Structure formats: structure tokens, C-alpha cells
Simulated scan of single mutants.
Amino acid sequence: MSTFSLCIYCGSKLGAAPGYEGAARQVGTLIGERGWQLVYGGGNAGLMGTVANATLAAGGRVIGVIPQSLMAREHGHTGLHELHVVDTMHQRKQMMAERADAFLALPGGIGTFEELFEVWTWRQLGYHDKPVGLLNVEGYYDGLLAFLDQSVAQGFVPAAQRPLLQSSTDAAELLDRLSRDARTASAPDDYRKI
């Protein structure tokens, strides 16, 4: 593996708790300090902008992918190493997934949920073998994690699939896990199947 590339899904808003922005800044700083590459949705608003700017400030490389229709709404970030402006959300998500070695969700809204669940579903279906993580900042994802455990208990999510969505409240520890697991990923990447 060349430079480790981490795809971040997160909100285009800052959220109500100040800890969300702090966590995004910490993750971006860790990416940059480790010499990694950030792949994200290309915006300069909310947590998206925070993680990108922190990565850049810490010396990391940043690739953004944004649909043309969201350039104004998400304040397309023009200070990145690469900014790919695409036609559709499907193109955005596919390009982000192809450029990443692992995935991490920070706090966010419906778009973040959808991206996280899609890439976890792709892992379950064998379209990739890249690790998927969720940073649970200030208990933001407590309810979701409990619901996922309930889904396993009720027989809708296979027990073997649940651990494939790794979670932690400790950003550095979770990034270490994702990086380590990405090195052992073996399944071919074939997002064209989707």
C-alpha cells in the first residue's frame, strides 16, 4: 500500500455540540501528522471543511469529490490538492470509495448515514474488504449503535457483520485500527458491480 488514504463522511454543518468540531479537527490533524491522505466530500462547510483544513494545516494531502449541484451549498473547497467536480451523488460516492483504503464516519446527518450504510453494505456483499469505522463523539451515535445491536438480536443483521462496523470514542485508537486492518484487506475492489 502506498500512502494510506482515509475516506471521511461527516456533516456539512458543525452540529450543536462544540466537541464535534473539535473531533473533526483532531482527526484531520492526525491524518496530516501521519502523512496520510484524506478523501472526502469536497466541501468547505461544517465538519467537512474542518477536517479538510486541519489535514491541510498538518501537511496531509486532501482529495475532494463534490457534485456540481452542491458546489455552492457545501462551499466547494478550492484549496485542495485535488477537487473533482462530478455530475451525480453516485459518481461522488464511487470515486471516494475507489480512492480510499478505509472509511470513517464522524457526526453528520442523513447524507453521512447513507454513505456509511452504503459502504458497510458493500463490505457485507463482498464488493470490497476495506475497514469501516464510526467515531462516536460525545455519545452522538449511542442510539444508532444500540439499534444495530438490536437488529442483530432480532435476526436482521448477521452477527458476523456487526463487528465489521468498528466504533470508538478515541480517534487515534480507531485510526490505528483502521490503518492496521486496511493492510490486511485482500478482496478485490470492484465498485463497478454496484
Rank of each mutant, 00 (worst) to 15 (best):
Met96Tyr: 10
Ala97Gly: 11
Ala97Gln: 00
Glu98Lys: 04
Glu98Asn: 08
Glu98His: 10
Arg99Phe: 11
Arg99His: 14
Arg99Cys: 02
Arg99Trp: 10
Ala100Pro: 10
Ala100Glu: 09
Ala100Asn: 11
Asp101Phe: 12
Asp101Arg: 08
Ala102Pro: 06
Ala102Ile: 00
Ala102Arg: 00
Ala102Asn: 00
Ala102Trp: 01
Ala102Ser: 03
Phe103Tyr: 15
Phe103Cys: 14
Leu104Phe: 06
Leu104Gly: 03
Ala105Thr: 12
Ala105Leu: 09
Ala105Lys: 08
Leu106Gln: 06
Gly108Thr: 10
Gly109Pro: 05
Gly109Arg: 10
Gly109His: 09
Gly109Trp: 09
Ile110Ser: 06
Ile110Val: 10
Gly111Cys: 08
Gly111Val: 06
Glu114Arg: 02
Glu114Asp: 14
Glu114Gly: 05
Glu115Ala: 08
Glu115Gln: 02
Glu115His: 00
Leu116Trp: 03
Leu116Lys: 00
Phe117Ile: 04
Phe117Trp: 07
Phe117Leu: 11
Phe117Thr: 08
Phe117Gly: 03
Glu118Val: 00
Val119Gln: 02
Val119Met: 07
Trp120His: 05
Trp120Asp: 09
Thr121Tyr: 08
Trp122Thr: 01
Trp122Lys: 08
Trp122Ile: 02
Trp122Phe: 13
Trp122Pro: 02
Trp122Met: 06
Arg123Leu: 15
Gln124Pro: 01
Gln124Ala: 04
Gln124Met: 00
Leu125Ser: 07
Leu125Asp: 11
Leu125Trp: 11
Gly126Glu: 08
Gly126Asn: 06
Gly126Ser: 09
Gly126Thr: 00
Gly126Met: 05
Tyr127Asn: 01
Tyr127Met: 14
Tyr127Phe: 14
His128Phe: 06
Asp129Tyr: 01
Asp129Pro: 01
Lys130Asn: 13
Pro131Trp: 12
Val132Tyr: 13
Val132Ser: 12
Gly133Met: 07
Gly133Cys: 10
Leu134Phe: 07
Leu134Asp: 00
Asn136Arg: 07
Val137Thr: 04
Val137Pro: 01
Glu138Pro: 01
Glu138Ser: 07
Glu138Trp: 02
Gly139Leu: 11
Gly139Gln: 13
Tyr141Asn: 05
Tyr141Thr: 06
Tyr141His: 14
Asp142His: 10
Asp142Trp: 05
Asp142Cys: 07
Gly143Val: 02
Gly143Ala: 14
Leu144Met: 15
Leu144Ser: 05
Leu144Asp: 04
Leu144Tyr: 02
Leu145Thr: 08
Ala146Ser: 12
Ala146Asn: 07
Ala146Arg: 09
Phe147Ile: 02
Leu148Ser: 05
Asp149Lys: 13
Gln150Thr: 13
Ser151Leu: 04
Val152Met: 04
Val152His: 05
Ala153Pro: 11
Ala153Arg: 12
Gln154Val: 10
Gln154His: 09
Gly155Lys: 06
Phe156Gly: 13
Phe156Asn: 14
Phe156Asp: 07
Val157Pro: 00
Pro158Lys: 14
Pro158Asn: 15
Pro158Glu: 15
Ala159Lys: 05
Ala160Asn: 05
Gln161Val: 00
Arg162Ala: 03
Pro163Ile: 04
Leu164Val: 13
Leu164Asn: 14
Leu165Pro: 08
Leu165Lys: 05
Leu165Gly: 03
Gln166Leu: 13
Gln166Tyr: 06
Gln166Arg: 15
